[in-house]
Simulated assay, not measured.
Amino acid sequence: MAEAIAIRSALLQAIDLHINHIWLRSDEQGLIGAISSGRHPIELYGVLSDISMISQTSFSFCRFSFIRREINGLADLYDKACLHSGPSLCNS
């Protein structure tokens, strides 16, 4: 859940910064698969629906890819901060 919230937050921040090409990488392979396939598990349905809608309507180019956790350290820290801080940090 925290990774999905972090991805949604990153998309919203990119919009605020007027970025129209974005490539997000995550170490959550199942989450990337769910985003890419459009099959949203019930527990993540709302957040994944937001991600799909935002990515399709707000960017000229938007890609999601899996990356191993060892390579994705900074994003993992942000993900954990979102999980522990509540909505003020990650739901801007």
Rank of each mutant, 00 (worst) to 15 (best):
L31H: 06
G38R: 13
T57W: 11
S92T: 08
R25T: 09
M53S: 09
I71V: 12
L74V: 07
H84R: 11
A6E: 10
L74S: 05
E43G: 01
H18T: 14
P87A: 05
A75F: 08
A75W: 08
C90E: 04
I51K: 03
A34H: 14
S92I: 05
C62K: 03
S58N: 14
I22L: 15
A81C: 07
R68G: 09
N91R: 12
I67H: 07
R8F: 01
H18P: 00
I51R: 01
E28N: 13
C82D: 03
C90F: 04
G33C: 06
D27E: 06
L17W: 06
S9M: 09
S58C: 15
H40S: 11
A34R: 02
S65T: 12
I71R: 08
G33W: 00
R68S: 13
R68I: 09
D16N: 13
F64H: 07
L83T: 09
D16S: 15
I15P: 12
P41L: 08
G33K: 13
E3M: 02
A2L: 05
I71H: 07
L48H: 01
R25G: 06
D50C: 00
M53L: 15
L17F: 08
I42Q: 10
R68D: 04
I51L: 00
G38S: 06
I19C: 14
R63L: 06
